[in-house]
């Protein structure tokens, strides 16, 4: 059973649709004890880091995500969920969960690029199981104004270029994080989610 963390950060309908399409057994829950009983966790999220962290703290869901990560069971953070597993975010100077070492920084509009980074971009990945069957330079759908800078090269599972090179996906033991939206990235995204379901 996969637990999808519902902490009121954006819409879970697309994650719900993609998991249903793949035939996954899952539940969407805002109850820490229910989520901690699951075998895998998906930690999605769209929105702003500070208010998301406030909800995570007051609801006990942040603690549940941290506990789940420590338990060694597979966890996949998506978009804001991926950013929040890092140490901190420049978005309103937010202290995050600190599960993977690194920072979340804002794209500078001075680079002459439009912010948010919204649309399809290619990634280069390092062939971990999450990307099994996903070709190099496959396109994924991104929507974000802040990007992940993993502290250790060893935690970078995929990278992407948008004015600068940033961490598109990260891995640390049982913890996976992707900045893009696999649930909105067509067949490549479904492949990635299917890999998470079957290979972890």
């Amino acid at each position: 059973m996969i637990g999808v963390v519902d902490y009121k950060a954006g819409n879970l309908k697309s994650v719900d649709s993609a998991l249903s399409h793949l035939g996954a057994e899952f539940l969407i829950s805002d109850k820490p004890e229910e989520l901690l009983r699951c075998d895998k966790m998906i930690f999605p999220g769209v929105g702003e880091a500070k208010s998301a962290m406030e909800v995570l703290k007051s609801s006990g869901l942040g603690q549940a995500v941290r506990e789940f990560a420590l338990s060694g069971k597979p966890l996949l953070g998506i978009c804001l969920g991926a950013q929040i597993v890092f140490d901190s975010s420049e978005e309103r100077q937010t202290e995050c969960l600190g599960i993977i070492p690194g920072k979340v920084k804002r794209f500078s509009s001075q680079m002459g690029l439009k912010v948010p980074h919204m649309g399809w971009n290619t990634i280069e990945h390092n062939n971990i199981n999450l990307f099994k069957g996903v070709k190099q330079n496959s396109s994924f759908y991104f929507v974000h104004s802040y990007y992940i800078e993993a502290q250790s090269q060893g935690n970078i599972a995929a990278s992407c270029e948008y004015g600068l090179n940033f961490t598109a996906a990260a891995v640390k033991d049982n913890i996976l994080a992707c900045q893009f939206h696999p649930e909105k990235s067509g067949e490549a995204g479904l492949q990635l989610l299917d890999n998470f379901l079957k290979l972890y």
Partner: peptide, 27 residues
Amino acid sequence: AEQIFIPFSVGGGISTLDDIKDVILAG
């Protein structure tokens, strides 16, 4: 939303926050 796995938007006749909410929550 149940069948296609790329982003999509909806426009036309959206004038209140409730209209926005209905469409976003539908996927």
